[in-house]
């Protein structure tokens, strides 16, 4: 089975850090939001009380913030130091065309599926949603953790606003992961039981051809021109160097 390299080691480690810290944050955060439920109270008591739950929540929060810093430094290194054109996640007009194409396809108005590039619009949305989520939940979480220090600089009203933002935005994040992200990564009949690429870094060429035909077309074309990677997404270089692994 031929495989295509899709994610490098840094990206895989970043996803594991993000996923594991997210699970800990959700599991320790939701019982605090829905604290009047008996199940929340039993869970908090089982973990040794609210202080232990908060400690776990804060440790996981710092892991997630570290992960985000790691990703930003990694991007800087990739783009500025190694001069790779790692802009595969940037939204383009093609994404807008793909959205309308998808809708027509869903509704049976066209016989062709949209031909996605390396990252489909849903993947881009997942990616950028983390930036928004970290800014809102991370920022408000720090305000709730250090209310005295934060109100020394900002007006006091930021604390109740942070409380609302932290708790409501967290429901959005958990809802999105459970209902949308887990569907596309696990439950969708096209990938069931799971899409392993984010852990192994590789995806079968047949799968890549089906889901990301424009991407495959681009690097096979480049490869046919004598292995040049010009035009291919820059962070694919490592995999392109290895080419399509048999």
């Amino acid at each position: 089975m031929k495989e295509v390299a899709r994610f490098d080691l840094h990206q895989r480690v970043q996803h594991i850090l993000m996923a594991s810290s997210f699970v800990v944050l959700a599991v320790t955060g939701l019982p605090q939001k829905f604290d009047d439920l008996a199940v929340s109270q039993a869970f908090i008591a089982a973990l040794g009380g609210l202080d232990s739950v908060r400690l776990a929540h804060r440790v996981a929060a710092f892991v997630m913030l570290f992960d985000c810093a790691y990703h930003v430094v990694y991007l800087f290194w990739l783009i500025v130091v190694r001069r790779r054109r790692a802009f595969g996640m940037v939204a383009t007009p093609q994404d807008l065309r793909d959205i309308f194409h998808s809708l027509r396809w869903f509704l049976g108005l066209t016989r062709t599926k949209p031909a996605f590039d390396r990252y489909a619009y849903m993947e881009k949305f997942d990616y950028w949603a983390v930036f928004w989520g970290i800014a809102i939940i991370g920022g408000s979480g720090l305000a709730l953790m250090f209310p005295v220090a934060v109100t020394a600089i900002l007006p006091g009203v930021v604390i109740p606003v942070a409380f609302v933002a932290h708790s409501d935005e967290a429901v959005l994040a958990v809802g999105w992961i459970v209902f949308v992200h887990l569907f596309y990564a696990h439950l969708s009949p096209r990938v069931f039981p799971m899409d392993r690429s984010i852990f192994t870094g590789k995806t079968p060429l047949t799968v890549a051809r089906e889901h990301h035909p424009r991407w495959v077309a681009r690097f096979t074309e480049d490869a046919s021109k004598g292995g040049s990677v010009a035009g291919a997404p820059a962070d694919m270089l490592a995999s392109s160097e290895r080419g399509i692994t048999p």
């Binding site: 809708l103 396809w105 959005l172 809802g175 999105w176 209902f179 949308v180 969708s188």
Partner: peptide, 20 residues
């Protein structure tokens, strides 16, 4: 924001599933 985003996401998933 939560209602709109989650609503659109879930509709997308459902349409995708129906088409499959």
């Amino acid at each position: 924001l939560t209602a709109i985003t989650l609503g659109l996401g879930i509709v997308h998933v459902e349409l995708d599933l129906l088409r499959w």
